[in-house]
């Protein structure tokens, strides 16, 4: 395992600037998740690290060695692709053994079989080793794909939305599994996804990508609680943060220059004495939590409640915000650092 450092890495495809001067460090044994919508440059950044694309500018270092112009093979990387990762003409065993049979590996048959079995056990696909790669369920295929990456001892794991083709339940299982495996192996991992839940649960640090620019990189909690701008604030949290005009809610202590206010749904208080009047438009029960969609003077606001709270569409209520929980953004969309984490923590007592 090794540290990976990208400095000012840029990449264009014709007119499209897929990445603009990306600075990123993935520490030894760290799990970094790049989060971004489609076309943000997530796959491109992984391909640059793997050597499948040449950077137009900047340098890439793996374990202290500059590898910017190296071909893929000597970089010693394991890559889990977004799709098409298994060879349909091989069995599961042969798929997993494929990286071990690469030239220069010089492993004996027994060593290869032992290693494959060990990883198959880890991923709980031992009984599938004889299957054709095409005779697997989506979840098993993805586990084999991850297994292919794990059989080697690469300097870094690159994973391109490995869970995106799975259904919700399996995705959750695999998330837990992946985190466990990564932790056990101490594997340096660069993982990209557009799923905020994956990012929040897997990452040591989340990097938020927007049109080829790394907007912010920090621990999941820091990115969630102190987003740099409205874009980042919107990428994390479900339902999305409420972005409101300053006049909609009566708030104390707004910093000067606040053009827009961000309030997370869980920070919205209902039946707040002296709060802004609002009407309940819809109630969505999610099990433990309930999302209440409200309307206050034509502005839609989401509130997230722990309990259903006996609201029904058409009810009227009043809105407030947990003290110190509102975020202020300037006219450019950047957050004005007045509502900092400590005040939030004080407010919650955590």
């Amino acid at each position: 395992m090794a540290e990976v450092v990208l400095q000012g890495v840029g990449k264009s495809f014709g007119e499209t600037r897929a990445l603009k001067a990306l600075d990123l460090t993935v520490g030894d044994g760290e799990f970094v998740v790049l989060l971004g919508p489609t076309g943000a440059g997530k796959t491109t950044s992984l391909r640059l690290v793997a050597g499948l694309e040449r950077a137009d500018s900047g340098t890439i270092r793996i374990g202290g060695t500059e590898v910017t112009d190296w071909p893929p093979a000597p970089r010693n990387i394991a890559f889990v692709f977004q799709q098409y990762s298994l060879y349909p003409h091989y069995s599961v065993f042969d798929n997993m053994a494929f990286p071990l049979r690469a030239p220069g590996m010089d492993l004996s048959k027994d060593e290869i079989a032992g290693r494959v079995r060990e990883i198959a056990r880890l991923l709980r696909i031992e009984d599938k080793l004889k299957n054709r790669a095409t005779q697997l369920s989506g979840g098993e295929m993805q586990r084999v794909a991850i297994g292919r990456a794990l059989v080697r001892q690469p300097s870094i794991f690159l994973m391109d939305e490995p869970l995106s083709s799975l259904d919700a339940k399996l995705r959750e299982e695999m998330r837990v599994e992946l985190k466990r495996i990564q932790h056990d192996l101490g594997a340096t991992t660069l993982y990209v996804t557009h799923d905020q839940l994956e990012a929040m649960t897997l990452a040591d640090r989340i990097g938020v990508l927007r049109e080829g620019v790394l907007v912010q990189i920090d621990t999941p909690r820091a990115v969630y609680e102190t987003p740099r701008d409205i874009y980042v604030a919107r990428r994390l949290g479900s339902p999305q943060i409420n972005i409101l005009d300053p006049g909609v809610l009566t708030l104390d202590g707004l910093p000067p220059g606040a053009a827009q206010i961000g309030v997370r749904p869980e920070d919205v208080i209902l039946r707040h004495d002296g709060g802004t009047p609002a009407r309940v438009r819809a109630v969505e029960h999610l099990g433990v939590e309930t999302v209440i969609v409200l309307d206050s003077g034509g502005t839609k606001i989401h509130a997230l409640l722990g309990a259903a709270g006996a609201f029904a569409p058409g009810d009227t209520t009043t809105l407030g915000v947990h003290p110190g929980a509102a975020m202020a953004f300037d006219s450019q969309g950047a957050r004005i650092a007045a509502t900092s984490a400590p005040t939030r923590e004080a407010a919650y007592g955590t």
């Binding site: 793997a50 050597g51 499948l52 071909p71 893929p72 093979a73 970089r75 990387i77 394991a78 890559f79 692709f81 977004q82 799709q83 098409y84 990762s85 060879y87 494929f98 990286p99 690469a102 030239p103 220069g104 590996m105 292919r148 080697r152």
Partner: peptide, 18 residues
């Protein structure tokens, strides 16, 4: 045939011809 198949092999240490 998706390019990813070859790219996966190349990343795994195979030459393009292999």
């Amino acid at each position: 045939i998706p390019r990813e198949y070859e790219e996966a092999a190349v990343v795994d240490g195979y030459t393009r011809l292999q």
